[in-house]
């Protein structure tokens, strides 16, 4: 026996963008404690990176200023600019930052697989689920990175004050000096770059697991245990 068709199946509608923004923001705010922990991962990564970069800028600026009376390390003998050790530190901090953020976001999304499966049961399209997580991770990344960049910058500032005293304020490399070799980016640009990097990394870190979960049949997503 073949059944008769009662009503056809429609196409699921797209949701307004603002609705996604509202839901993702609300979701972040309500699980504030968990969000803070995830965000802390981003904050620490970016704080480390920014502090290394700012420290570097400060050292170069102070060397060039000729204010060497306070410098007692071996670096004194070296030409101004980024040393091998600095390069190594920057690369390390970048790796720590990338891995830390990716790990935070991966955990945060994986523990919500059941939620993703449930949303799909209720009629959410895959791309809606992914968009929700991208927005959430974007907010989180921006907030975490901004705080991290400021903390990192402040830390380097304190370190610089200890090393160079108040002279630091006269020569503080706030703005970029691009016509020099090697180019100096200045603290403001470093903070901005830190924010952008933190946001991009956390969005990428969230996108992969969110996309994978959204593609799964809901039954499988809900079965997945963390």
């Amino acid at each position: 026996m073949q059944q008769q068709t009662r009503g056809t199946i429609g196409q699921q509608i797209e949701l307004p963008f603002m609705e996604s923004v509202r839901i993702s923001f609300q979701s972040l705010m309500i699980r504030f404690g968990r969000s803070v922990i995830t965000t802390a991962g981003i904050t620490l990564g970016i704080a480390f990176l920014v502090s290394v970069l700012v420290n570097n800028e400060v050292t170069v600026a102070m060397k060039e200023s000729g204010s060497k009376q306070e410098i007692t390390t071996l670096e004194e003998e070296e030409a101004p600019g980024i040393t091998m050790k600095d390069k190594w530190l920057i690369i390390m901090s970048l790796i720590v930052c990338v891995v830390g953020i990716a790990n935070s976001m991966l955990m945060a999304v994986t523990e919500r697989f059941q939620e993703i499966g449930t949303m799909k049961c209720l009629g959410a399209l895959d791309r809606f689920v992914v968009r929700l997580f991208l927005l959430e991770s974007g907010f989180q990344g921006l907030a975490g990175a901004l705080i991290g960049a400021l903390i990192g910058c402040f830390g380097s500032l304190l370190l610089g004050l200890k090393d160079y005293g108040l002279d630091l304020f006269f020569y503080f490399p706030l703005l970029p000096v691009l016509d020099e070799q090697p180019a100096r980016f200045g603290v403001l640009l470093i903070i901005l770059a830190g924010c952008v990097l933190g946001m991009i990394l956390s969005v990428i870190g969230a996108a992969f697991p969110a996309w994978r979960a959204a593609k799964l049949p809901p039954a499988e997503a809900m079965r997945t245990e963390v």
């Binding site: 699921q12 209720l122 009629g123």
Partner: peptide, 27 residues
């Protein structure tokens, strides 16, 4: 059915009740 039709189907035709309720706890 296409992905979009399945989503529509789950949204309009079927209501799901689960053992562990599956409510979104942030809402």
């Amino acid at each position: 059915l296409s992905q979009s039709q399945i989503a529509w189907f789950r949204c309009h035709r079927v209501g799901y009740i689960f053992q562990s309720y599956n409510l979104l706890h942030v809402m």
